[in-house]
Design a protein around this nucleic acid. Structure first.
Lengths: 204, 204
DNA sequence: AAGTCTACTGAACAAAGTTCAATTTTTTCT
DNA sequence: AGAAAAAATTGAACTTTGTTCAGTAGACTT
């Protein structure tokens, strides 16, 4: 078959991403392959390479979309809350997302990433947007006086949550002392915030 | 070539692991392949499959060895310390390990793991041994009265540290507000321990 | 020395990402 | 309209994986 023009480049681009998302969601990251995606959208493998640099590029775009879903999800879950409740809600939302969209979340973080510095700006910004949600909640809680410190602490909270989810979904439950992921995340947030409280009280 | 018997099964097993370790250390996880390891020890690919179930099995054994190194490293770094210093030392040791043996640490956690429950007992125990280091330090700090809670908190601290290392080695520095991994880890431990202090004071 | 056993080889298979000459269709030009 | 140019699509082919297994060369047994 030769030229057929029934879809624009953009069409194919988004069709591929949608199909890839379905494949990963339903069958996990290991089911994703160039041939598989090409077949699902009714094109040959070669066509994908007109639209994506390579498969890693496709995955990166997909990751971007997933990060955006995660952002929406967390923002939604926390928007009506304030103070400590806001932070707790953000943490719970992250945990829920990893549980409810496990395959997508796995794709995000299990897949070997390109070297640092090779990530495009737009991608980095989507990661930062997640941090900013937590940072804003911390500012809401402690005031904007020491924003720099809170920015750092927001990153730490995010990393901590992330580590807990990773551990929980990777290890058998006994290893974690039988505690569920929600317990761990809840305890983490409570303790870390208690630590922040203590330090802010001391500073005041 | 046929039978030659210049090495026992165990010889080949350990030679393969040693070569694999070198390859990963020097060239990263993506350089590891069955042919590569086989070549390095002077055997054909097929021979590896007499000694390992498959390549994932080899990697699992390798991961086990790396976990053991990590354990020795952390235990060594913290053994002369007590109380808060002990916990801080453990955290710093973990961070140092991820920095100094980045490729090995990457193999441990970047490689897609077999499904939960398929990990052998001995492997799970090595993970727990790491947790136990932190748990022991917490018991040393707060006493053994509420051991169950401390076990959970040890897992949380480990996960938090892990998340921070992951984030730091995966993202460009600007994303983390310019703070180095040591800063983040130090802040995390300080704040989380401060939170524990507050709660233990309240309980007393 | 003959026969048995077995460690080892290496060719072969499937599936992966990726490339690109050939082909067919659309667009443009005269 | 017809010819020429451009573009989009294919699919076969190449490379590199992990993995298997019939065959074989060497070591052991009697």
């Amino acid at each position: 078959m030769g030229r057929r023009n029934d879809h624009t480049r953009e069409d194919i681009h988004s069709m591929a991403l949608i199909s890839a998302l379905q494949i990963v969601r339903d069958e996990g990251p290991e089911a994703l392959s160039a041939r598989r995606v090409a077949g699902a959208i009714g094109y040959s493998p070669g066509t994908l390479y007109n639209v994506f640099e390579n498969l890693d590029d496709l995955v990166l775009q997909l990751d971007g979309a997933i990060l955006e879903s995660l952002h929406v999800y967390m923002a939604e879950a926390s928007k009506a809350k304030a103070g400590r409740e806001r932070i707790t809600a953000l943490g719970q939302a992250y945990v829920s997302f990893t549980r409810d969209h496990r395959n997508l979340w796995t794709l995000l973080f299990e897949r070997p990433m390109p070297d640092v510095g090779e990530l495009p700006e737009w991608y980095t910004q989507r990661i930062e947007a997640l941090f900013d949600l937590i940072e804003a909640a911390l500012v809401n809680l402690y005031g904007g006086a020491e924003r720099a410190g809170l920015a750092q602490e927001a990153r730490i909270m995010w990393a901590g949550l992330h580590g807990i989810c990773l551990l929980s979904l990777t290890q058998r439950p006994e290893v974690l002392g039988g505690h569920g992921i929600d317990d761990l995340a809840g305890n983490f947030i409570a303790n870390y915030v208690a630590g922040l409280d203590a330090r802010h009280a001391a500073a005041a």
